[in-house]
Design a protein around this nucleic acid. Structure first.
Lengths: 160, 160
DNA sequence: TATTGTTATACTCTATAACTATA
DNA sequence: TATAGTTATAGAGTATAACAATA
């Protein structure tokens, strides 16, 4: 530790970095908060060998049996090509299957296996528990306001 | 458009995908809202040939003349190696300089040039204006609550 | 012609190990 | 020895173009 008094006009000063300008921006504030949430989620999912995207895809497939890859990509707000390897991984681990859609032979109907549904139950429970701890210092009213604000921002999506 | 009535138990159904399970999680909600904020920010900064990270670094250097790369990496919550190419880019564009610290020849004191400060002014003004539009449907009280919640979450950073 | 899933590709962000030069 | 900056590298996430099969 440097216990020496520093000359504050000197370039070698060690006092805290000011982020006052950036703290006025929601982009900066949200990014920093999201880093914490993401790190917690990543660590929680590691126990199930899942990542944010494989977890999200698994949950949506369990909750929406039979949906197509293009629907899933839309729901996850990612491009179709990026979904392919996610689905590949879940299928390789026998958590889901690609079923042919009889009425449209171009498409796949995605369905979870029993193993997939079981992993879903355990992972959702773990994430629920971890998020409760993460938000322990926020009351329900505040969380509601924050979630509603997120919805408003989502709807402000660029229409340029 | 498919105007045909679909059999809702059929795997080819086209009705909306349910994300009810995921919408209970702040990770999911925040990610979706952040995607919107990030896309808007990215589009705004493109006019100045800046990205989120080069913008953040430039602002922190202008506001904290003389800080070191390790301090900046800490402030930006990224690893030191990842900062190098960011600083390289800003320096190559003559927006900042790496000044040697006379008292510690291992370190650099980062300082913005006149061009850097001018770009800072224009970029900060543009981002401010864009964020105002993005948050137009949220009142100041709500924004305050959301920002405070972000601070609480930031402080909940994992101490495992 | 348009759509579904796919391949190939590229850029960005993030993380770790190991090096160099200094302290 | 420890630290500041660097290089090399790898894993994720994201985006676009173009293709084959099918509608």
């Amino acid at each position: 530790m440097n216990t020496e008094k520093q000359n504050l006009t000197n370039s070698t000063e060690t006092h805290a970095v000011s982020d006052a300008t950036l703290r006025a921006f929601i982009g900066y504030r949200m990014k920093r908060a999201f880093n914490v949430v993401r790190d917690d989620l990543t660590a929680t999912l590691r126990a199930f060998d899942l990542r944010m995207l494989t977890y999200t895809a698994l949950v949506l497939i369990v909750d929406n049996p039979g949906l197509r890859q293009s629907q899933l990509a839309d729901a996850m707000d990612i491009e179709r090509p990026n979904l392919v390897i996610i689905i590949d991984e879940l299928e390789r681990r026998d958590l889901i299957i690609r079923d042919r859609v009889p009425t449209d032979r171009r498409a796949y109907a995605l369905k979870a296996t029993l193993a997939g549904r079981q992993l879903y139950e355990r992972a959702v429970a773990a994430v629920t528990s971890h998020e409760e701890k993460l938000l322990a210092n926020l009351d329900q009213g505040t969380i509601k306001i924050v979630f509603d604000a997120f919805s408003v921002i989502e709807q402000a999506k660029r229409r340029t």
